[in-house]
Simulated scan of single mutants.
Amino acid sequence: MKIPNILTLLRIVLIPVFVLVYYLPYGWAPLASALIFGLAAITDWFDGYLARKLDQSSPFGAFLDPVADKLMVAVALGVLVETFAEPWMTVPAIVIIGREIVISALREWMAELGKRASVAVSMIGKVKTTLQMISILVLLAVPPLSTLSWIGVGALYGAALLTLWSMFVYLKAAWPFLSEDI
């Protein structure tokens, strides 16, 4: 088993641990769940780095890495939506999760056409992911509606805007193939 794949699998194993810790009835649970999410976010970066550095890329890793990322983010956003229970928190979460579904389907379809490179990860996507991870970390670690939580909410809205922008960029690149038989 390759080290990057082990890190990806660790990220998936951390999902139920994250949820369990998040709902523990202790004052330290929010910070502990944020640390677990932070560990998962670091393994996301680190597994990609190691795959390139150690030349340990694999089809398994190429498939599972984005799945692990999307699962962790979707679960974290789900618990945050439940915690805040406000439309202003639900809207950016829906935008982020919805975009991930659309772009995953688009990438799969483009791969079937042999045009996967047309919708490769862009710098906008990397910035979006970084802002998204920071916002989720802050929102998990601090009490809802505290001064610091508003920083997390602002970062989440920034991530949602970049999410829409990157989705537009990907759809624009794929449009010639999508619109052939309209």
Rank of each mutant, 00 (worst) to 15 (best):
L162E: 10
V79G: 07
D47C: 07
F84A: 08
Y157N: 02
Y26T: 14
S122N: 07
L71S: 09
S58L: 01
P87D: 08
V17Y: 12
I101M: 11
K126S: 04
S179K: 12
L39N: 02
I97S: 10
V73K: 00
Y22D: 00
M133E: 00
M89L: 15
L140V: 09
A117P: 01
M110T: 13
A173F: 14
I151P: 02
L131K: 04
L71A: 13
T163K: 06
F60M: 11
L139N: 03
A74N: 05
Y26I: 08
M167G: 15
S118P: 00
Q132M: 02
E112T: 11
L140G: 04
V95F: 15
L145G: 01
V102G: 03
A51M: 02
G38V: 03
F168K: 07
V75Q: 05
G152R: 05
V91M: 09
F168P: 02
W175P: 09
G27T: 13
Y49M: 01
I36R: 09
A41W: 03
D65W: 00
A160E: 07
V79W: 08
E100L: 07
S179E: 12
A117C: 01
W28N: 01
M89Y: 14
S179H: 14
M89T: 13
P25W: 09
A62S: 14
K70P: 05
V153R: 07
T8M: 01
L113S: 10
Y22F: 15
L14Y: 14
V142F: 15
P25S: 10
L148S: 06
S104Y: 04
L9F: 13
V17K: 05
P16G: 11
P87I: 07
G152I: 03
M167R: 06
G154I: 03
V153E: 00
L162A: 11
P144F: 00
L178V: 10
V13K: 01
D181Q: 14
A76W: 01
T147H: 13
R11A: 04
M89N: 09
L9I: 15
P59A: 13
S57L: 08
L10S: 15
A159V: 05
A105C: 12
S33F: 12
V21S: 09
A32Q: 06
S33H: 13
I6P: 08
A141F: 08
V21L: 07
I6R: 15
